[in-house]
Each structure stands twice: as structure tokens, then as C-alpha cells.
Design a protein around this nucleic acid. Structure first.
Lengths: 150, 150
DNA sequence: TTAACATGTAACCGAAGCAGTTACATAGTT
DNA sequence: AACTATGTAACTGCTTCGGTTACATGTTAA
């Protein structure tokens, strides 16, 4: 599929913010710092944060020493929320050109496909809804802890 | 999502071939004729047929007056078969650049995401598997029959 | 055997989307 | 007022897609 990586970036960003750093170095969540963890450019992070902010998942201001915050508990942000926030469209696309409406098959097939795609998409979304940012963070940290057994 | 229309084209092609034209004009299934129904270029159809043939869903030769055929009943070809035949990859992608392995979050997040994506993708595929080409054809024809009520 | 027909495939085009980057105006803090 | 970080525009290189032309190859029918 075509597929961009915005979903992955957005989840990473949220998990990074969700991680409680009060014990460590009191690192404020800036696009710069997050970009280091994601290994990309700060602007890419700002674009992601912009979408997440528009969706009401995070909040932040321009001032110094501010830092981004989640607007609610990480356990209450699902990957479906993120999926919608980053504006991912449909998984399947119909051809731009409409089929031959004179053809027995062509006449209605786009509508039929659209319905089928809707069901498939819904199944996908239902699965995304079962996972939260808290889940992702927990699993990621678990992997970090159990590393270095190599 | 990125999203191409190959899936849609392939399903259209299969439904077109599945439609029994013995009663009508005995139209042989050529890339040219199918292209008319799909409203695209014959080469696009040939590319699709090439993938479907490689997947063993259709068969055809170069000769004249041959025509493409399904290798099995339309009721036994699922949209999941088609999905795999057209080589659609994963719905979600991870960033090309690996995250910062020193970061508590970055270290394991790609693996975590990959697992989640796998589950979501599986849900999608399960839904596609429930629909066959025969289903699509039946529904499309039903729409054709009940048209012109406008 | 030969003419007709249809496929397979390479090659190219324009359009679109994406990630990355630079640059800079703007806004909020200290 | 100085500092800091965001928001955003603009540009780049890369990739993919659908569409198109062109042509060699293979198969059938006459």
C-alpha cells in the first residue's frame, strides 16, 4: 500500500510525552528533543504535534520551558484516536475514472466496493481502538528493560 | 493513506470475467474489452491480469479469440485472495530511520508498533476474506437491475 | 503457412505525496 | 528586553501511481 509513517511518528511522540521523566532529568517535551528520539527533523515533529493538538490530544504553547502535555491520561488515548488525528484516509481507493455505466458490472461495482471497504476499514479501526498509548509505552519500556541480553 | 486503486481494478476485472455472457453477445474477455468497462487503458488491465495470473486466479493465453477465464468458481475467490494477488503491502509503515536506541521509548517502540499493526492488518484481512467475487458480482448486478428509478 | 489478433513488457510522462531541510516571523517566559 | 520554542511557508529529492506508446512474442483461424 502507499503508506506513510505519520501514524508511527505520532504514536512515538505521544508515548514520549507520556513517559514520566520527573524522576530523571526533568526533560521538557520540545519538538527538538522528541525529534532526537524519533530520529528525524523537529519540523516533522511539529507537524505531527500540530495535528495532535488540532485533535485535542495534546496541548502546548510557544513560550520557553513550557513543553507539550497530553490532555488526558495515556490510558485513555487509543491508537484509533491517533489514526483519526493524523488524518489517514481510507485504506482502499476507487479508480479516479468512473466505470462504464452501460456495463452490467461497471454500473454498480464502485458502490459495492465502497461498502465492502467500509466494513474492512471498520474492522481495522476496531482493532486500533483496543490499544492505548499507555499500552504502547508499557510494552516499549518492557523491551528496554529486558535488552542487553545479547 | 497512500492508497492505490489496484485492488479495485483487480476486483472489477474478476467480476467482469465471472459474469456469464453466454446468453448475450458471447463477448470474449480481452484486456481491451475489460478496459472499456473499467474505463482505463488496456495495459493497466494487463498488468492486473498478470498479477492475478501469477497468483493462479485467472488463466489466459496469447492467442486470438481465447479470452481470460477464472481458474475456479467465483464463489471460491475471496477479496483476500485478490488483496494478496495484487501485492498490497502493509497498511502502516514505520519510519525509515530507526529511533534513538538510547531512548527509553525509542529503543523498543518499533517492535511494539509492528506487533500492533500486524493485529490490525489481520482484522482487515479477515473481513476481506468474508467477501467473494461472486458476492461482488451479485450485488453489482442487483444495482444494475434496480437502476433507472430516477 | 500466413494473416490476424492479443498478450507481455519496456520505456516514458506528468501528477501527487512524502520526508527532510532551511528560514523566519510570532508568541509566550523569565 | 532577551530568550526560547512554535507555526508555517517554501523548496528539494525521492518514490509511486496511472496512463500511454511502441513493439516483440505467441497463439489461433483460415
Amino acid at each position: 500500500m502507499s503508506t506513510n509513517s505519520r501514524m508511527s511518528v505520532a504514536v512515538h511522540v505521544l508515548a514520549w510525552i507520556a513517559y514520566d521523566r520527573r524522576g530523571t532529568d526533568k526533560e521538557i517535551a520540545t519538538s527538538e528533543r522528541i525529534a532526537t528520539s524519533v530520529n528525524t527533523n523537529p519540523v516533522v515533529i511539529r507537524r505531527a504535534l500540530g495535528q495532535l493538538k488540532a485533535a485535542g490530544l495534546v496541548d502546548g504553547s510557544r513560550g520557553r520551558l513550557t513543553g507539550w502535555e497530553l490532555t488526558r491520561d495515556a490510558a485513555r488515548i487509543t491508537l484509533l484516536d491517533v489514526y483519526r488525528a493524523v488524518g489517514e484516509g481510507e485504506v482502499f481507493a476507487l479508480p479516479a475514472a468512473p466505470p462504464d455505466a452501460e456495463c452490467y458490472v461497471g454500473y454498480g461495482i464502485h458502490d459495492v466496493l465502497a461498502g465492502t471497504y467500509r466494513n474492512a476499514q471498520q474492522a481495522l479501526c476496531a482493532e486500533l481502538e483496543r490499544v492505548t498509548i499507555a499500552d504502547v509505552l508499557r510494552d516499549a519500556l518492557a523491551r528496554y528493560e529486558s535488552r542487553s541480553l545479547a
